[in-house]
Structures are given as structure tokens and as C-alpha cells.
Design a binder for these strands. Structure first.
Lengths: 272, 272
DNA sequence: CCAAAAGTGTTCCCACTACACCCATGT
DNA sequence: ACATGGGTGTAGTGGGAACACTTTTGG
């Protein structure tokens, strides 16, 4: 059962924004952020969620800061729920970024922030906490595309789901973060119950088939794919069908959680 | 060719220690550390390097802080070279730890530090930079056990190579870090040229066979193991043998770097 | 000659691949 | 009836697992 809550937002008024800029250093750890690569699936395409902040040209991954007394994983969940209203997401840490030039040199960051935060009428100086060098912990999330309701924050001018094959240049090193997330997702595809979070509870074989093709960027034989998924025991066929218009009704399947967990334990897990 | 350099040390005098405690916050990013799990192989056992700091009962993983203008990967290499004198190590980031109680609550840390730094005669207050909440980025390293020369820092009372099956309770959440490192190592064993860094340049089949058994904690059939390694193309048999006393002389093998790289590119890489 | 360790080949089975025709449904 | 998409089985192949005897060497 997936639970959907409506949660409290983050910065949805000019006052909250100014408070964030002026007092954020009292609330958040400096030098550390979290960036989330949110994968969604729709229309046979694998997409990611991008945000564009006020005054910036480039798109960004949704991200945020860690509170002083907050666990890292908890922070990732909070940040994501602030952007998507989804909780109980599948969320996986995959790498911490601290090498690219943008993460060593703070000039561009200061510049960017000044544009983004122009709405607040508060200048971000070189000494300001937001101008600090910041390392970023990358998490990827998997969401059921149709259940996500994006409620942009005050600072977010625009958001978009974009196909992973048509991702524009992003701010900072976010393209690099995305690339690594995608690599990780692909390598973990058969070890984690990936589809569980990208598909509705009941789905058809063609649906999960297309999903795997979209994620891995290649094609699979229908018959062999079904055999493999059943042999691995990650999905189970139901005795129901779905009506899909003027065509034969496909069977419905569900993820077999008991078996999936066994598969997970067997495959040692971690990758790079 | 592996290169061994002697590098500059870190804290090898009371003066440097006091300087570190008093002025470290000017040199290092706060709230962030790096911990390294150094795997070494000897006597058919997989071991890790542990340090014990002055005044502490428990053992620690070698670790350190990131300089303000230093890349994260560079910091990991620097920290490790300060402890082992080895450079050009295989070093792999595997997870960032920020959830366990010790990483949320700074009391114990302050307490520990006061014992450890007693040598310096400088009290670590609750406001001191070393008492801050600290997240840690985990790296694991693989070293050729016989080439490592440990030169303990001033603060390090003792060091030890301990079998991974006999690891005592460590400080902070270091046992958790070790567990995750080991999981990662195991899952990446056939994708990375792991053995390259744990064995001498030329090695016998029984040697690499025992290494794999030690890492994975289970046994493999000699004949099948050889077939698999040769089929994967990661090792190549030489026309030399090694004298090993009153027994048949085993052939020597080397890693086939050309082929290993191909294998690496093929296998998507990342895991967690 | 003996003890200890290394070298080597075959069989079996399962998992993955390739491949094409029939069925169901709504218009 | 037909167009569209879904469902299904078989044969071949290659890689992994199981398995035991012979050879080398120094003492």
C-alpha cells in the first residue's frame, strides 16, 4: 500500500524566502546539500523531474539542505516530499559529489544565487552561507508518474518532466549527477524492486516490458522477458485482465514482494 | 607499475596537533569527514587496517577531514597516503553516512575527542569545531599488504591489521561503515580489477583463488575458478613457475589490463 | 617413497537466445 | 472483416556446477 499525504510546504511566500536566506545557516548544515534525481515513467518514456528557479535560465534537479538535527535519509525524504507531495518513496543514495570545478569554486554559485533570490531583495555576498562551497549527496527516487502532484515552491518558476534522452544542460554539475544516477539505476534494475515504484499496483506485461526497455535503452523479446521475470519471481500473474479498447485484454500482474525480498538478500546489493 | 612515494605527514608533533585543534576549522570543512576501509590480504585472510588513538579504548577506521579547496577524491587519497604512505591506490567511494545516532548527537563525540586529544592539553568544548555533528563519506581501498608501511601519526598509539571475521567493536558507527564497505567490495568483485591491488604483480592461481574465497567468504572449485577467470580474460597465464618448497611449482599469472578494462566498460558499474 | 600441493577434462543442467503464429477485442 | 496488439512454445547453445585422478617437488 502506498500512502499519499499532503505535507507542509517549504518556501511559499516572500517572508519564508527571506527567512531562509537570512537565517538558513541556523537551521541547515553548511557545505552540504542533497540533490534528487526523480525518475518517473509515462507514455513509454523514462523521465526525470526538473525545476527552474526564478531568474535562472537553466534547469535544476530538486534539492535542498540538511537540518542540523536531521538524519541524512530523513532529509532526502523531506526535501522530496516538499517538491512532490509524495512520501514513502523508494529513495536510494548513490554518490556524493565533491570533485567537479563548480563544487570547488564558489564564484558561479554566488552569481547564480543572486539571480535566483532576486525576488527576495537580499544580496548574497561572498561571505553569505549560500555562497559556501557545497558538496552534494545524490539520491535517486522512483515515482509513479501519475500519482505525483507537483506544487511548485514560491521560488520555482517552472517544472517539467523531461525524457532522459532529451535532458538539456542543467545548472552546476547536475548533468553529471543525473548520469551517475542513471548508471546506478540500470545496474540495480534486476536487484531492486525498481518497477514497484514506477508502475501502478497492478500492471500489464507490456507495461513493465516497455518500462525495462526505457530504462535500459534497448529492446527485449516479449516471450523471453516474461519468462525471465517469472523465473526471477519478482512478478506474479493475476487472474484478471485489463480492458484496453479494441484489442485483446492483457493479463494483470503484481510484484511478488516476498520473492523480491529474497532476491534482494541474495544479490549482495551495493554497486558503484 | 605501482609507484611508492614517501609523502609528508600530518600531525607528528605536539605543535602540529595543537595547531590542528586550534586552527583546523580554518583549513577543513566542518561537518564532513572521510573514513577509509583499507583492505589488505595476507596469509589467506582478508584484513582491514585499524588505528587506535591516544586515550581511546576502541579502534577506528583511518579517517580525516576535507580541506576547503580540495576535491573530495583528492582528500581521500591524501588522508590515506598520510596513514599508509601509499599513493596511486585503488580507492572507491561507496556511501555517505549521516543517519546513525552518533552522527546526530554530538555529546559522545565531544567526550571521545577530549580523551583523544588530551595529549595536546587543549579542552574541546561543546562549541569547538571538532564537536560538531559530522557526516562521513566512506571510501574503501585495496592495498598490497606487503608493500604497506604504516607510520603512525603522533596521535596514533597503535595500529593493527585485523581479519574481517574478527573485527572488534569500533568507535562511532565504524562497524556499520565497514559492513557496507564489505558488501560493496563483494558486489563489485567481478566488475573491478580488485585483485590487482591486493596481490603482487605476479601471483599463482592458488593465491588469487584463496583471495576470492576470503573476500566472498565461501569456497570455489579450483578447476572452475581457473576456467572462469581465464574466460573473463582478467588474468593471463605466464610461462614461469614459482618455487614453493617441497611441492609442485605453480604457474605464475598476471592481470590482463587490456581485457580487464573492456570487462569494466561492459559491466555498467554502479551498485549500492 | 612419501606427503603435500598443483595441474587438468568431462558431463550435466539450467538459463538465455532466437524465432512466428494464433487469439481477442472493438469498430 | 479487419486492424491492432497480446498471448504463447520450442529448439539450440553456452556458461556454470559437480566431480577425481595424476604430476611435481623436496625431504
Amino acid at each position: 500500500m502506498r500512502l499519499l499525504y499532503t505535507i507542509n510546504f517549504f518556501m511559499n511566500s516572500p517572508e519564508e524566502l527571506v527567512d531562509f536566506i537570512q537565517h538558513g545557516h541556523q537551521r541547515y548544515l553548511p557545505h552540504l546539500s542533497i540533490d534528487c534525481v526523480v525518475f518517473g515513467y509515462h507514455d513509454q518514456q523514462l523521465k526525470i523531474l526538473l525545476l527552474r528557479y526564478h531568474g535562472q535560465e537553466n534547469w535544476n534537479l530538486p534539492g535542498g539542505y540538511v537540518e542540523w538535527q536531521e538524519g541524512l535519509t530523513a532529509a532526502a525524504h523531506r526535501i522530496l516530499s516538499e517538491k512532490t507531495q509524495l512520501v514513502n518513496l523508494f529513495l536510494q543514495q548513490f554518490y556524493t559529489f565533491g570533485d567537479s570545478p563548480i563544487r570547488l569554486n564558489r564564484i558561479d554559485i554566488q552569481n547564480n544565487h543572486n539571480k535566483a533570490f532576486a525576488k527576495a531583495n537580499v544580496a548574497i555576498t561572498e561571505q553569505h552561507w549560500l555562497s559556501n562551497r557545497t558538496l552534494s549527496v545524490g539520491y535517486y527516487a522512483l515515482v509513479d508518474y501519475q500519482e505525483v502532484t507537483i506544487t511548485p515552491e514560491y521560488l520555482v518558476d517552472d517544472y517539467a518532466w523531461v525524457d532522459i534522452n532529451e535532458v538539456p544542460p542543467l545548472s552546476y554539475d547536475h548533468n553529471e549527477i543525473l548520469d551517475k544516477a542513471l548508471l546506478t539505476l540500470r545496474s540495480q534494475l534486476y536487484q531492486q524492486s525498481i518497477g514497484l515504484n514506477l508502475l501502478p499496483e497492478k500492471f500489464t506485461l507490456p507495461e513493465i516490458h516497455s518500462l525495462y526497455e526505457a530504462i535500459l535503452g534497448k529492446q527485449f523479446d516479449r516471450r523471453n522477458f516474461r519468462k525471465k521475470m517469472l523465473a526471477l519471481g519478482v512478478i506474479r500473474q493475476l487472474d484478471e485482465r485489463r480492458k484496453i479498447g479494441p484489442h485483446r485484454s492483457p493479463f494483470l500482474y503484481v510484484f511478488d514482494l516476498e520473492n523480491s525480498n529474497k532476491v534482494l538478500e541474495a544479490g549482495a546489493g551495493v554497486a558503484l
